[in-house]
Simulated scan of single mutants.
Amino acid sequence: MKHIVLVVMFFGLHLNAQSLESFGLKGNVKSIHEELKICNHKYGNEQTTACSTSTSERKFTKTGDLLQLKNLLERDNITRKKVETPTGWLETIYNEENDTTIKIAENYYDKNNLMYKRISFDESGAILNTTEYFHNSTGMLMRMERNTLNDDGVTEKAVNFFDQYGTFCGLEFYLDNKLNEKYEFDIQYQFDEIGNWIQSIVTTEFSTDIHSRTITYY
């Protein structure tokens, strides 16, 4: 389960979903401040060993369009270049450090500016992995598939599932297209008076993840 951290974080994804519906939100939402606290368990029991916290913020216009996505995990040495293509847009991401510029990823967007593929590269320019994103009709992320070729020449695929609220809820691992591991998570929600969830708690044998949201309305 070491790969689970690849997808538990929604904060690291730049999918450019544009509307309240694509985030599963109701009402006239002005902004959402999110905090995700992950506490790892010790050898499969619920005794926590260490916790880490990440935060993120989204802002919306009065018409329900995404105004700003502030990702507090973004680094100062990361730059992005986005150009139009026949099918949408291509965003190239670079790491600039010690007077050296290295391409670390390519993000592919459709004509609705929704990312459907990401290719990550190592320092030599070789492909580390390829990730594909699948959305429903409102633009909400429902499934994510990441393919990696390991050192033994075996193709590893991690398929990640998200529920109707956009929360990471299940995971499947494949080795050379054969199912190797499968996990489904029981998620407990608390909702506000509008019907938007303000806290989700996911407890597995590996960690307890507490995702809290402060929602401000117009």
Rank of each mutant, 00 (worst) to 15 (best):
Q18H: 15
G44W: 00
Q68D: 12
K42E: 00
L73D: 07
A50Y: 10
N40V: 00
G44A: 04
S54C: 01
T48M: 03
G64P: 07
G24W: 12
I38Y: 05
H41N: 05
K70H: 10
L72W: 00
A50C: 05
K62R: 09
L72Y: 10
N45A: 01
I32Y: 11
N45Y: 00
N71P: 04
S31E: 13
K62S: 13
H41Q: 03
Q68P: 06
N71G: 11
E74H: 04
E34F: 08
T61D: 12
R75H: 09
S31T: 11
G64W: 08
H33S: 14
S52C: 06
R80H: 06
T55G: 03
E35T: 09
G64N: 08
S52H: 04
Y43L: 02
T49A: 11
E57F: 13
C39R: 00
S54A: 01
E34Q: 12
A50D: 01
H33D: 13
E57L: 11
K30Y: 09
K62M: 08
E21L: 14
C51H: 02
E21D: 15
Q18K: 14
S19T: 15
V83M: 02
N77D: 15
G27D: 10
T63Y: 12
I78K: 07
E46A: 04
K59I: 11
I38W: 04
